[in-house]
C-alpha cells in the first residue's frame, strides 16, 4: 500500500512540485521588475557577467586563508554530492530507464563509496560550521537546518540501501528524495540554480562599470 504510494503518486507529485517550483522561481527572477540603468556604461555587460559566473568558483587569494574551511569543505561536499547523484550506478540505471533512455559510465563501487564519504564529510563539517561559527549561527534560519538535514537524510538512506536487496530500504531512500524534491523550490536549496543569475547580475553590473570581479 505505502510502497505503491511512494513509488507512484507521491513520486509524481514531488517531481511536479520540484519542476513547477523551480520554473516558477526562476520565472519570477526573469519576469520581475528590472531596473534599467541609464548611466553610460564603461564596458560591456556580457563579458563581465560571464567572467563573474566562473571567477566566483575560486575564492579571493587574500581572503582564502580566513575562509579555507568553508571553501575546502564546500568543495568536498559539492563534488562528492555531484558524483553520487549523477555517477552512481543505480541512479544512472534509474534515469536511463525512466527518463532519459540513455546512460553513461558509472563510478565503480569503490569510487561511489569514496564520493559518498567525501559528501558526508563535507556536509557534516559544513553543517557543524553553520552551527558553531558565531557568524553563520547568527545568520542561519530553520530553513537552512532543514535543508542540511534533508540532504543528510537523502545521502544516508541512499548509502544504507547500498546492498540493493531490500525494497524497504530503497523505499526509504525514495521517500526521503521525495521530501527533498518537495522542499527544494521553497528553500535556499534553490541556490543550486539561482547562483547563476545572481552571478550574472553582479558580473554585468561590474562589467558596465569596467571592473573585473
Amino acid at each position: 500500500m505505502i510502497d505503491s504510494f511512494i513509488d507512484g503518486p507521491l513520486w509524481y507529485f514531488s517531481l511536479f512540485i520540484f519542476f513547477a517550483g523551480v520554473i516558477l522561481r526562476l520565472g519570477s527572477i526573469i519576469f520581475s521588475k528590472h531596473k534599467v540603468d541609464l548611466s553610460v556604461a564603461k564596458g560591456p555587460e556580457t563579458p563581465g557577467a560571464l567572467r563573474t559566473l566562473f571567477s566566483r568558483f575560486i575564492p579571493d587569494k587574500g581572503l582564502f586563508k580566513h575562509i579555507k574551511f568553508q571553501v575546502i569543505a564546500g568543495y568536498v561536499f559539492h563534488l562528492g554530492l555531484f558524483a553520487v547523484i549523477f555517477f552512481a550506478a543505480p541512479h544512472i540505471k534509474f534515469l536511463d530507464k525512466h527518463f532519459l533512455g540513455f546512460s553513461w559510465p558509472a563510478l565503480p563501487h569503490w569510487g561511489f563509496l569514496v564520493a559518498a564519504q567525501l559528501a558526508f564529510l563535507g556536509l557534516i563539517l559544513l553543517w557543524l560550521h553553520r552551527i558553531m561559527s558565531p557568524v553563520s549561527r547568527l545568520l542561519s534560519t530553520k530553513g537552512d537546518h532543514i535543508s542540511s538535514i534533508l540532504t543528510f537524510v537523502v545521502l544516508l538512506t541512499g548509502c544504507l540501501a547500498l546492498l540493493e536487496s531490500f525494497s524497504s530500504l530503497r523505499l526509504l531512500h525514495r521517500f526521503s528524495v521525495e521530501l527533498f524534491l518537495i522542499y527544494f523550490p521553497f528553500s535556499s536549496l534553490m541556490h543550486a540554480f539561482t547562483f547563476v543569475p545572481s552571478r550574472i547580475f553582479t558580473g554585468a553590473w561590474f562589467g558596465r562599470r569596467g571592473i573585473k570581479s
Binding site: 522561481r25 519570477s28 527572477i29 526573469i30 519576469f31 520581475s32 521588475k33 528590472h34 531596473k35 575564492p59 579571493d60 581572503l63 580566513h66 575562509i67 568553508q70 564546500g74 553553520r130 561559527s133 557568524v135 553563520s136 545568520l139 542561519s140 534560519t141 537552512d144 535556499s188 534553490m190 541556490h191 539561482t194 547562483f195 543569475p197 545572481s198 547580475f201
Partner: peptide, 21 residues
C-alpha cells in the same frame, strides 16, 4: 524589490563568508 533582490535573497545560503571580507 526587483529581480536583483529576488535573485540575491534566493541565492544566499548564509555561509557567512562575507563577514571575513
Amino acid at each position: 524589490m526587483d529581480s536583483k533582490v529576488e535573485t540575491y535573497f534566493s541565492s544566499c545560503v548564509n555561509c557567512g563568508i562575507c563577514a571575513e571580507s
